[in-house]
Simulated scan of single mutants.
Amino acid sequence: MAKHIVGNTNEILPGQKKIVSLEGLSIGVFNVHGTYYAVKNSCPHQQAPLCVGKVSGTTLPSKPGEFLYGREGEILRCPWHGWEFDLTNGHSLFDPNRCWVKTYEVEVGQVEEEPPKLETYPVNVEEEQVIVSINR
């Protein structure tokens, strides 16, 4: 599994997103209340650029005559036809068991990079001359 640095936490503040291209895929990275989520930037309905859609909340189960709104900042709405997806797991709101958008693991931290490996050769100093030895 390849890991890619997409930016620093101060570049994607709560409620913001960043769309990046990784390994030929367009992916939206969202900061939802301080937790980061990544989804493929393609609606499964007609491949609209999903991540340019509006992020909002949704109505919650409630008693008849009541209107409860919640989950603000967790629901991504497709800009073309209004299909809604849960950013926390990629599932659609209308049919979560059969329709979803691909999600990707996101972590915050430091990537341990290996220092570049350089090919080295022994060096000897003889009679004020510098000599490099290459053994093949």
Rank of each mutant, 00 (worst) to 15 (best):
V106D: 01
L76Y: 05
H91G: 08
V20G: 07
G82M: 01
C43L: 03
Q16W: 05
E11M: 06
E23T: 05
E112L: 10
G24H: 06
H33T: 12
T59D: 13
E119F: 01
D95Y: 11
K117E: 11
S62K: 02
R98K: 15
D95C: 11
I131T: 09
V32K: 06
H81W: 06
R136F: 12
E107W: 11
S42L: 13
I5M: 10
K40F: 14
P116F: 10
V39A: 06
S42C: 12
G57E: 05
L87W: 02
H45Y: 09
E127T: 01
P116K: 12
E11S: 07
K3F: 08
V52M: 13
S62I: 00
S21Y: 08
E126W: 05
G15E: 08
G53A: 07
R77S: 14
C78P: 02
G65P: 00
Q16G: 09
Y121P: 00
Y69K: 08
N97E: 15
G34H: 08
F30M: 06
Y104L: 03
Y36N: 08
V125E: 13
L60R: 06
C43W: 05
N124L: 13
L60T: 03
Q46V: 11
E74G: 05
T103E: 04
W100E: 14
N89F: 01
R136D: 10
K18E: 03
Y69E: 07
L93Y: 06
G70I: 00
A48N: 07
P64C: 00
G73M: 01
V132R: 11
N8P: 00
Q47Y: 11
L87G: 10
G24T: 03
G28Q: 02
V106G: 03
V32H: 05
V130E: 12
L50V: 01
G73D: 03
D95K: 13
V132Y: 02
L60P: 00
S26R: 11
T35R: 15
E105A: 13
G57D: 07
S42K: 14
H4R: 14
I134E: 11
P79W: 06
Q46I: 09
I5A: 13
A38V: 10
E114Y: 11
C78Q: 06
N31C: 05
P14H: 09
S92I: 03
G82S: 04
G90A: 03
L25Q: 15
L118M: 10
T120R: 10
E107A: 11
I131Q: 08
C51M: 05
K3Q: 14
H33A: 15
G28P: 01
K17D: 07
